[in-house]
Every structure is written in structure tokens, then in C-alpha cells.
Design a binder for these strands. Structure first.
Length: 892
RNA sequence: AGAUCCGUAGCUCAGUUGGUUAGAGUGCUUCCUUGACAUGGAAGAGGUCACCGGUUCGAGUCCGGUCGGGUCUACCA
């Protein structure tokens, strides 16, 4: 068969993926083997995979493929989440382009459009996962809005509510007064702006009940019955319902029980004392406006203050403001500032650097607004989740980096707001009657039953369901359970077999949003961790270190990259530059490296095929011991053991690096050259067969990382019925370190001799005569053939003493004399030797210094001291060799 | 503002409990093209391990500080 000049990935990748699918290799059913289960972090259904996903999916595929080849029943669940905020935004945008306003649609109509959208675009990510070669079980695709999933989410909500773990409470939301809608935090852009801090004087009035006399305050902050507050938003003063100072602030202690008058409207408000106020900020006195600030709202709750909402939905002043009703908040601000000036209420104005939130949708300044939301109590759920990680039941990788973060967050956890003012998602199963009474139930019928206990005339049409939907994380926190229907149908065969899953691979940025909450749900509902290991990948950045984002447009298109370099090269490129847990700077150059690696493998295959054609039939030429084979066999086993060890530590990037080096350097650059027959010569059949076997094992080792080319090569090496994809990895043989050492020495000698040739400008084609001076001739006899081939020596012989008129090379304790017909440049040789001599001398000095230090000899471990002594002896030998060489040179 | 991680070759990064002369990839320099591969081969140069101090016989590694950078969380009148 004729093999193409270079490896052509486009001819293999689709072919093999289709083959694997047809064979059902990725489908998993419970059986007697141990399970290795991975659930994909579900990407956003309307999105496309970005480089962060690519890294994640590649890591998962490597782990899953390795497990599949190691006797496990590997099961990798693909899927996507409904991403309520992002998806709804996209659907709204799409409708707008069609000239349809969401506000003019019913909920049902809108959801119909949304599902159509999902059907149309939801497949993109699946296509990308496939193109990347991911070995997911396509029969188990799960979507967070699937019927069973929807029901599971509702069931969990009702359950937690009944347990008292879900409650309704107040929360400040981001309100867009132009779009008249609530915004998520993600939809708010913060910008640094120059604002003004206004110092306003509020007149004091005696306490309503009893006066405390007319004693004036000692502080300059108060003048003749005024208290001064600092505010950025003077237009909200009409919503003030108290002034708050710190009880420890001596400037204000005398104000206990007094009232203040809100300027312009002269409403009387109490002065309250709470440690929340920072005496050092502004004047140390805070105006409390519960309707427009969450902290103020909480103070209001604590002190039972009235809530006066002075703004309408559209950002104009409401009737409650009493003045400037109907005017825009910023227009009103200017007018009010003027009036305050006129009436002498403004003590001073100060420039003030602040951050304001702007709506991504409409661009206007976001208005904080108090609203009723649903919350999950976190403390009770957090404790077992913290314990699972703290006790080491769940291991985080890399641990040192994220353990502290995880513990800190769970130790200081805040309640989780789970309601969203959207339609796309699981609608909150809370039902209201006309009087506003509320029950929580899985269905309207259930709700009706609950209401009927109180009122039997009630009909189902009288019920109104809560408008809001649940946070997407409130569905995805059930992911490791519900992909096996473990919440909607507890105790089924799948959940029993696959749960807990093996490893979760995800980005460190969602450690709290998702990872911690999955652990909470798992511990709460299964009383068991959802996964044993968590592997955090770093963030993918661009070459300049910037975060990849849609707005910067610096995220490359995955399918284009695969078209250009092939999936194997993309996987290689992203893995090779991805140290465990650290961010990686994505550079297409690493994909090029991957493509070149493919080509290298391909050409090694071509070389073997060339040899195959020249193999003598049925005849073994040479059955004797072959150093190259023994060495490479050991080297292979050595690396296989290292790789296994790296897998355990999730150091996949390092594993790939040493496999890469094993194939390129040890196999291609050394081994193949060592066994290569002379030009037009046939190859020893035993060597050939052994080489095919090595190649096969290399492909096996690399397969999890680069599945396509390895499968292709596996089949091209020889005809077979099985597939590499499901081949079971053979056990690792024992190591003979002596042979490995000999191999390293051989490489060193070859490089040193080539270096000497280079420096003396001996052309590669020019043959030399090599004389070796060594105490161990036996060792060199074995590798003589390799050595002569590798340094182009026409003769190799051993010598007891220095050979004159040659280039001398010293490696370890042995000396090599290169005899050549070419005229040698003694100057260059001498310079090199002197440089080396100086280096060795310096080294020897440092060792001597150490050994002369009594405290070192006394304190250091015996093996360390022994090592230093060996260094000392070796250095002395090397120096002697160099000096001899210099002597020899003089004879030139 | 809090929490946390990082600073090693031109660039991107490894460097296990302190113990050979600090490694790799890439880039750079020199040489090499009829023979698997120029998407290649052979070889080489390149580092005061951010800075200051401490512990130790010994520090890239441990401790304290300074400077610089990242990430997450919170944003305060």
C-alpha cells in the first residue's frame, strides 16, 4: 500500500469516529466491571464550545479512554443546560429581529419560540463534541429541561420548601428602568465614574416624647441643631425613613431619642444607632432609605422602619416622593440639588470616584430595587459539603490551590437566591389565591388540594402560579444524580451502579456556583458524594494573557481549528500547554506542534512499511541479543510506569510531554536509527516484529490523548480484527536499570562525538576511525555497531593509551579518539578543552568546599555525603582526562 | 476592600519531603537535502530562580517583609 507523504487527518478522523459509534464502544450498561463515570459539565445549549470547553472535554476524554482501556466500564454522559438567562436573552433578541416583542407574547407562546430555538441551535455543541473525538455515550444525552429533569427540579424545590430550607425574602435586584425589567448580575456592566458626594444638613427636632435639653454637640459636624449626612443620591432623600449612626461614635451619643427633618419635605424621621455604620466614612451619619438600598432595607427590618419607594418602574419619581413627581431621577436630582442649595441644606460638595452599574441591554444606569425572591438556606446544606472535602472524601486537584478557597466560601456561605424574573426555565411551583395566600406544590392539582383544606369553594382556575423561574444552577446542581434519573426515580439500576461518579472536570471559576452545590445536593439526597475527584482546569487565555471572551473576539472557532489542524492536533496543542490547574496561554503554534507530531508518527510508520517490503521471507537472520531492542523495551516500560503515576496525579500535560518525547526522541531519533538496516539492506525479521510491537504499544500509550491517528496507525501496522479504542492495556514489565543506564551512556557518547565532529567541521559524510580507551570494553563491544553507525566511524577499536594526532573526547571516565584525515585545528580544540577544564575545576572546588565543612559531613544524611564524595572522585577523573587531552594536543 | 495564587532561559512553563553542575517546549545560532519525515536531521548558545532579610552545614524550595501581576468574592452612605 502506498502511504501519503504527510499524514492526512481528514481521511481518518470521521471514519474512525463513525466506526467506534457503529460498534457501540461508547455505550455503557451496568455490568460486573467497576464503573468509571464522568458527567460532562453541561455547556449552554445555545452556545458554541469555546477553548475552555475544548480543554475540559479533552481532559475528560483522556481520562475516560484511559479507563476504558484499563478494565473499567467507562460511561461519559453528554448533555447541555438550558441557561435561562443567556438563552432567554438570545430568544428575545431573535424575536426582536422578527419584530416581535416578548411583552406581547403569552408565556406559552414565548416558550414555543424558545424550544424551536433550542432545537435549531442546541445541536451545535454536540457536533463539536463529536468532532473533537469525545467518547461520550450518545444514548444518554441529557438536557436540564427534559421532562424527567424538569420534574426532578420541581420535586426537589417542594421537598426543600417542606423541610424549611427554602423561603421567600427580600433582595435587591438590578432594575433596568428603560427596559423595565430585572437584570442578572452578568447583565450589569460596572464603570468607574466621577460622582459627587453631597453633605446635607438635616435639622434636629427634640424627641417626640421627652426632650433632652438644648445641649449642643461638641463636634464641628453638628451646628445648631443639625446633623450632616453624606450622600451621592440627593434625589432619594424623600425615601429616607431614619438616620443611622454608630452607637460607639461619641460625636452622636447625645442624639439618642431625637428626630431629624428630611429637607424639602420636612418629614420627621428617627435617629437610630447601629454598628453597621462606619464612623470613619463621610460624616459617620447615614441616611437610611430602605426602598433603594439592601443594607438600608435590612436596617429597616431590624428597626421596623417604613419603606418609602420614591421611584416608579421607569425611573421617574413616584407619588411617594411628594415633589417632582413624574420627573426622571437625574433631572430631579439637579433640581433638588438646586433647591437644597437655595435653602442652605448643602454644607459642601465633594468629588467622589465611584462605580456605577449600567445595563448591558439598554445602557442606562441600573436602579437597585427591593423585591421578593426565593432563597435556599445554605448553612445546613453547606456543612456536610464542607466536611466531605475537608475529610478528603472528595479530593480536589490541584489541592493546594483550591482547598482553601473552597473551605473559606463554604464557611462563610450566604443564602442562595434561586428565583429569576424569566420564563425560560423551571417555573417556581408556588401557587397563589386571589387574596395572595400561597402554597407550594408540585402541580396545580396538588396546590388546589392544599387550598381546599382552608376553602372548599375554590377552583383550579382561581390559582395563579408564581411567574418566576428557577436559577439554572438549581437544576444543574442535581446533574450527577438526574442524568441517571436518580432524583425523579430514586433507586433505579443506573443510579445504583454509576453513582457516585468518578471524577468531575471543570473550570475553577464555577467552584461555588456549581461544584460546591452539587456536593450539597449529593450529600443531602444520597448521603453520598457526587464524585470522588474534582479536577480543575485553568482558564484559557489568548497569547497576550487576556481572558477569552465574546466581546474581545479573541476566542477561535473550534471547528475551524479542527478543519485546519485536525482534532488530534487540537487536543495535543491544548493539552501540551496546559499544566494542571494553571491558566494556559493559547497559541496556535502549539497546534502546529501537534500537527507536526502527527506527521512524525506517520513517517515512522512509513519507514516500517518500507522495511516490511524488504523483509526476507520466513527467515530469522539474527536471533542473538540486540541492545537496541532491550534498551527500548525497558525505556518504554519506564515511561509507561511514569505515565501511570502522572495519571493518578492528574498531571496529564506532563504525561503527554513524556509520551511525546518517548516517541519523537527515544523511538524515532534513537531507536529507529539504531535498528535501521544499511541502505538497501533487508531488516532482521525479529527486529522488525519487535519494532512493530513497540510501535503498537506507543500507540496504545498515546491513544487517550490522540485517538484518531493512533487507531489509524494501529490498523496499518498489521491487519487486525480488534480496535485500539477498546484494547485492554497489557501490564508493565520489570525494569532493568543497567540497560537503561547503558542506553543513556550510549546517547551521551554519540552526542559528544557528533559535537566534536561539528566543532572540527567534519562533514557528516566523512568517515572517521574511532579509538576507545575504557576500563569496560565489554560494554562497548555490545554497542559497537550502533556507535559506528551513529557517528559514521569506519573502524572502532580499543586502545590502552592515548592516540596521538586525534580529537579527544571525554565522556564520564572513558576517552574517545577521533582519527581523521582532515587537518585539525589545534587552537579550537584547545580552547574547548580549557573552557571545560575551568568549568570542571570550579565544580570540583565547590564540592571540596562542601566536604571540608565539618558541619556538612556531620549533619547531612550519609547518602548525601556519599554522593558528594562520588562527585569529588568523578570530577577529579574528568579533570585528569582533560589534562591528558591537552598534553596530547601539544603533540599535534 | 477581603480571600487566594503566582514571579525560574527572549517567550510559555516543569522543578516531589530543602541535598549532583536548575530542566522541557518554543524561539535563536551553526551545520546538513537523492534513502521515513524541511511539518525534517545533527549540534550549540542562553538563567544573580523578582528584591531584601531570616532559619539551616546547605534555600529556586521553608519563614518574614518589599515590589510587581493574576483570579474569585464584596462593593459600602
Amino acid at each position: 500500500m502506498e502511504l501519503s507523504k504527510n499524514y492526512i487527518f481528514s481521511e481518518t478522523e470521521n471514519k474512525w469516529y463513525q466506526h467506534w459509534i457503529n460498534k457501540g464502544y461508547f455505550n455503557s450498561e451496568p455490568d460486573g466491571r467497576p464503573a468509571f463515570t464522568v458527567v460532562i459539565p453541561p455547556p449552554n445549549v445555545t452556545g458554541v464550545l469555546h477553548m475552555g470547553h475544548t480543554l475540559n472535554e479533552t481532559v475528560q476524554d483522556i481520562l475516560v479512554r484511559k479507563a476504558r482501556m484499563s478494565g473499567f466500564n467507562a460511561c461519559w454522559i453528554p448533555g447541555s443546560d438550558h441557561a435561562s438567562i443567556a438563552t432567554e436573552a438570545k430568544v428575545v433578541q431573535m424575536l426582536k429581529e422578527k419584530g416581535i416583542e416578548k411583552n406581547n407574547l403569552t408565556r406559552e407562546e414565548f416558550l414555543k419560540y424558545a424550544f424551536e430555538w433550542k432545537e435549531k441551535y442546541g445541536g451545535i455543541i454536540y457536533n463539536q463534541i463529536e468532532k473533537l473525538g469525545c467518547s461520550v455515550d450518545w444514548k444518554r444525552v441529557t438536557f436540564t429541561m427534559d421532562d424527567h429533569y424538569y420534574k426532578a427540579v420541581i420535586k426537589v424545590f417542594v421537598d426543600l420548601y417542606n423541610k424549611g430550607l427554602i423561603y421567600r425574602g427580600a433582595r435587591m435586584i438590578n432594575w433596568d428602568p428603560a427596559a423595565k425589567t430585572a437584570l442578572s448580575d452578568e447583565e450589569v456592566e460596572y464603570r468607574n465614574v466621577q460622582g459627587k458626594l453631597y453633605y446635607l444638613k438635616y435639622s434636629l427636632t427634640p424627641a417626640l416624647s421627652e426632650g433632652e435639653g438644648e445641649s449642643l454637640p461638641p463636634s464641628g459636624e453638628l451646628e445648631g441643631g443639625f446633623i450632616t449626612i453624606a450622600t451621592q443620591r440627593p434625589e432619594t432623600i424623600m425615601g429616607d425613613t431614619a438616620i443611622c449612626v454608630n452607637p460607639n461614635d461619641e460625636r452622636y451619643t447625645h442624639l439618642k431619642g431625637k428626630q431629624a427633618l428630611v429637607p424639602l419635605i420636612n418629614r420627621s424621621i428617627p435617629i437610630i444607632f447601629d454598628e453597621y455604620v462606619d464612623p470613619a466614612f463621610g460624616t459617620g451619619a447615614l441616611k437610611v432609605t430602605p426602598a433603594h438600598d439592601i443594607n438600608d432595607y435590612n436596617l429597616g427590618l431590624k428597626y421596623n422602619l417604613e419603606v418609602v419607594d420614591t421611584l416608579n418602574e421607569d425611573g421617574t419619581l413616584s407619588a411617594a416622593a411628594q415633589i417632582h413627581v413624574g420627573e426622571d431621577r437625574f433631572v430631579a436630582r439637579n433640581k433638588i440639588v438646586n433647591e437644597l442649595h437655595e435653602k442652605g441644606h448643602i454644607l459642601k460638595e465633594e468629588e467622589y470616584a465611584t462605580r456605577l452599574g449600567y445595563s448591558q441591554r439598554s445602557g442606562v444606569v441600573v436602579e437597585p430595587r427591593i423585591s421578593t425572591q426565593w432563597f435556599v438556606k445554605m448553612k445546613e446544606l453547606a456543612e456536610p459539603a464542607l466536611k466531605a472535602v475537608a475529610d478528603g472524601d472528595i479530593k480536589i486537584h490541584p489541592g493546594d490551590k483550591f482547598l482553601a478557597t473552597y473551605k473559606y466560601w463554604l464557611g462563610n456561605v450566604k443564602d442562595w437566591c434561586i428565583s429569576r424574573q424569566l420564563w425560560w426555565g423551571q417555573q417556581i411551583p408556588a401557587w397563589y389565591d386571589e387574596q395572595g395566600n400561597m402554597v407550594v406544590a408540585e402541580t396545580a392539582e396538588e396546590a388546589l388540594k392544599k387550598f381546599k383544606i382552608q376553602n372548599s369553594t375554590f377552583k383550579i382556575e382561581d390559582l395563579r402560579q408564581d411567574e418566576d423561574v428557577l436559577d439554572t444552577w438549581f437544576s444543574s446542581w442535581l446533574w450527577p444524580m438526574e442524568v441517571f434519573k436518580g432524583s425523579s426515580n430514586p433507586g433505579n439500576a443506573d443510579i445504583n451502579y454509576y453513582y457516585p461518579t468518578s471524577v468531575l472536570v471543570t473550570g475553577q471559576d464555577i467552584i461555588f456556583f456549581w461544584v460546591a452545590r452539587m456536593i450539597m445536593a449529593g450529600m443531602h439526597y444520597k448521603n453520598e458524594k457526587p464524585f470522588s475527584d474534582v479536577y480543575f482546569t485553568g482558564m484559557v487565555r489568548d497569547k497576550q494573557g487576556r481572558k477569552m471572551s465574546k466581546s474581545l473576539g479573541n476566542s477561535p472557532d473550534l471547528l475551524e481549528l479542527i478543519d485546519k489542524y485536525g482534532a488530534d492536533a487540537v487536543r495535543f496543542g491544548i493539552m501540551i500547554s496546559s499544566p494542571a490547574g494553571n491558566d494556559l496561554l493559547f497559541d496556535e503554534a502549539s497546534l502546529e506542534q501537534g500537527r507536526n507530531f502527527n506527521n512524525k508518527i506517520w513517517n515512522a510508520l512509513k519507514l516500517l512499511k518500507l522495511w516490511e517490503g524488504k523483509k526476507p521471507k520466513g527467515l530469522t537472520l539474527n536471533a542473538e541479543r540486540n541492545f537496541a531492542i532491550e534498551w527500548f523495551g525497558n525505556r518504554l516500560n519506564e515511561v509507561r510506569a511514569e505515565v501511570d503515576n502522572l495519571y493518578i496525579q492528574f498531571k496529564l500535560s506532563e504525561a503527554l510531554k513524556i509520551i511525546y518525547s518517548l516517541i519523537w526522541d527515544d523511538f524515532c531519533s534513537w531507536y529507529l536509527e539504531w535498528v535501521k538496516p544499511g541502505f538497501e539492506q533487508p531488516i532482521d525479521e525479529k527486529v522488525y516484529n519487535k519494532t512493530v510491537e513497540f510501535f503498537e504499544q506507543l500507540m496504545e500509550l498515546l491513544h487517550p490523548f490522540m485517538p484518531f491517528i493512533t487507531e489509524e496507525v494501529y490498523h496499518l501496522l498489521q491487519h487486525r480484527e480488534d480496535d485500539l479504542c477498546v484494547k485492554q492495556i497489557s501490564s508493565i514489565g520489570t525494569l532493568q536499570s543497567k540497560i537503561l543506564d547503558e542506553g543513556e551512556l550510549l546517547k551521551k557518547v554519540i552526542s559528544a562525538l557528533r559535537d566534536a565532529r561539528n566543532k572540527n567541521q567534519l562533514k557528516p559524510k566523512e568517515a572517521i576511525k574511532l579509538h576507545i580507551q575504557t576500563a569496560d570494553t565489554e560494554a562497548y563491544t555490545e554497542i559497537e555497531n550502533i556507535l559506528s553507525k551513529q557517528v559514521n566511524a569506519e573502524t572502532v577499536n580499543f586502545t590502552a593509551e592515548a592516540v596521538t594526532n586525534t580529537i579527544v573526547v571525554a565522556v564520564e571516565k572513558d576517552k574517545f579518539f577521533i582519527e581523521t584525515t582532515q587537518q585539525l585545528d589545534a587552537g579550537v580544540l584547545k580552547e574547548e578543552l580549557l573552557k571545560d577544564l575551568e568549568h570542571q575545576q570550579r565544580f570540583l572546588d565547590s564540592v571540596v568546599k562542601k566536604l571540608n565543612n565539618e558541619r556538612f559531613v556531620f549533619n547531612a544524611k550519609p547518602e548525601v555525603v556519599a554522593l558528594e564524595k562520588k562527585k569529588h572522585a568523578d570530577a577529579e577523573v574528568r579533570i585528569k582526562v582533560i589534562e591528558e587531552s591537552l598534553q596530547n594536543l601539544k603533540k599535534l
